[in-house]
Design a protein around this nucleic acid. Sequence first.
RNA 1: GCGGUCAUAGCUCAGUUGGUUAGAGCACAAGAUUGUGAAUCUUGGGGUCGCGGGUUCGAGUCCCGUUGGCCGCCCCA
Length: 437
Amino acid sequence: MPEFQTLPGFREFYPEDLARRNHVFRLWRQAANAYGFAEYDAPVLEPLDLYRAKSGEEIEGQLFSFTDKGGREVALRPEMTPTVCRLVGERAGSLKRPIKWYSIAEFYRYERMQKGRGRCFSQFNADIFGESGPEAEIELIGLLIQCMRGFGLTSADFYVRLSDRNLWVYYLASLGLNDAKTSAMLSAVDKYEKYADDAFKAYITEFGSLDEGLKAKVLSFLKINSLSALKALIAEQASSEKLTARLADWEKVLGGLDAMGLSEFVSVDLGVVRGLAYYTGFVFEAFDRKGELRALAGGGRYDNLVKKLGGPDLPAVGFAIGDMTFGLLLEERGLMPTIVKAPDIYVVIGGELERKVAFGAISSLRALGYSVDYPFKDLGFGKQFKAAAESGAKLALIFGSDEVAKGSVKIRDMAVRSEEEIARSELESTVREFFSK
RNA sequence: GCGGUCAUAGCUCAGUUGGUUAGAGCACAAGAUUGUGAAUCUUGGGGUCGCGGGUUCGAGUCCCGUUGGCCGCCCCA
């Protein structure tokens, strides 16, 4: 056992682990690029107040926070949203809209570890600022789906549950609930899937009782799982113009996603409201179809947050995918590749004299961008060919005493085990030709 | 913050009612092998048995504590 252990909940990435992480990041970047999002990054350490302002004082218990040597209260970032709100807010006046940004970054939360959750993790974050209409939701949900589809996951593997806090607020208002009751009821809705009727306990504690008729209406709304069911319920209880008007936004979002060919990935599901109070419209979460894992991704509209954090009034919608649960899903589906780091070329060297000649060729091939490896110590040819085969190189070059004396080099195609002797002057062009096939 | 469970080599594990110097496979390295491919054989490095205390003539083994892993609860931006 090493004297100094890794801090609890932190991860180390040995080369194979990092190769897998890089693979995930690369496909996320590819998806974001395809959707026209620009990548940004920002400090890992932020003023503690940034998170207090967004989430309240109680957030501090779950942060890696401390006082720095200048007496500043700081925290390792637990999420990207406040940071990106600041970045965009500061330059909102000069950024072309819509502002479509993404980042891939590591985050830190001081909490208990569980499957799919650690104290440090990476997230892909994507946000659209400056568009209040549902067009932003279409684009963002499309990107979310592509971020998973790009790995070979299908609609049999995951889906996005789409809901809307506006609908809930309008609906509860039409049932006569005030703001306090609405917020308590949303919290109950959020918990209903897990706790069933017990989810209403907090509401009852706070407001004395829960009318059975009201509860039935809330439950029937919560169980809506299609646009037609939503329309029917609203038509039946049409007591709010806002509700009816909101249906047009739903038509747009679902219609847009359908036109993109993505409707099989999206379910209407008003049982999702997300716990966070700052969401102001559509909210969505991605889950594995089997329901074995915690949420893969989550997001929604937060039109008031940029302003709340000191920026201009700027509508926004965003989501994040965490790397831990997503990685578990890829592994379960056998979609996490075993990435083997192999050089293009392995060089077999006869001895000390030949090594000097070989170094010239190695250096020039490397300058051309080929990945070239060779043994540090003089080894028998048998060992070297074994090493060449184990390295995974596609080509082996042989600088033995015979070849060096003749000014030639043998070039061996490792896959078909065929060899050809060429003049050293032809090496670069021969290699180039081989790899262009 | 709470509960359950586990901890022996880089990895997977064995280790008798407590008894000599803690083992195996895989992996790694050297040699057999100074001109050709994942084999084979030989050899080697690598352990304060998570850490600390206790019981005992004697602890990897039993007891207590602690740290860490895993699983769950709370929470989940």
